[in-house]
Amino acid sequence: MTAIVTGCSDIQREPGKVYMPDMGYSRAYETYAMTEEQKAELLKKGIHFSNTPVPGTIKRDELLPFLIGKDGAGDSANYVASKAVKNPLSSMDTVEAERLYLVNCGICHGPKLDGNGPLYRGGDGPFPAKPATLVGDAKYEAMPEGQMFYSATYGKNKMGSYASQLNTKQRWMVIAYIKSKQAAGKSSPAAAATTDSTAAKK
């Protein structure tokens, strides 16, 4: 019965045939498109689909790596030490920085940096932890950029590491963008009013 149903349904579960498989499917290794033999060969070397570059590799146009390592469990020495690190970027493309923020951070921290992105929705969204209020919370406005960079690189509490999605330069751009928004929030009176109201609640 199921055979008849699947036979007649419009759901196409098989990819179909090709003229010449060795022209259709790459002989060289390609991400997520490997023959079974290629997969077995890589597995022997302990590589699963994507290999990481040699440790210490620095890409062209990439900043020097962040030298502070990740803290062990229950330790915060490196987190504290990261406060001293300064942003190496002197200038940046603000439009691109905003785009990176909206793509990677806005989903939790909110497009307005108010810690209320679509995943949290004031506690009604699926994400159970309140994301940091980047603009309007004295704690994060006073946080040095190096420490923010540490959190973006290794993750903090329930925030994950963004080192695989954003490279060193992009992470610094995002942090500079947050800092610029915080500075703008402090100077503009409208934002100051919202800070006051949150302060009054406390």
Partner: peptide, 13 residues
């Protein structure tokens, strides 16, 4: 994406 990207949210969700 590598699975660490999934875990950015799914460590909590």
């Amino acid at each position: 994406p590598p699975l660490n990207v999934c875990m950015n949210c799914h460590a909590a969700i």
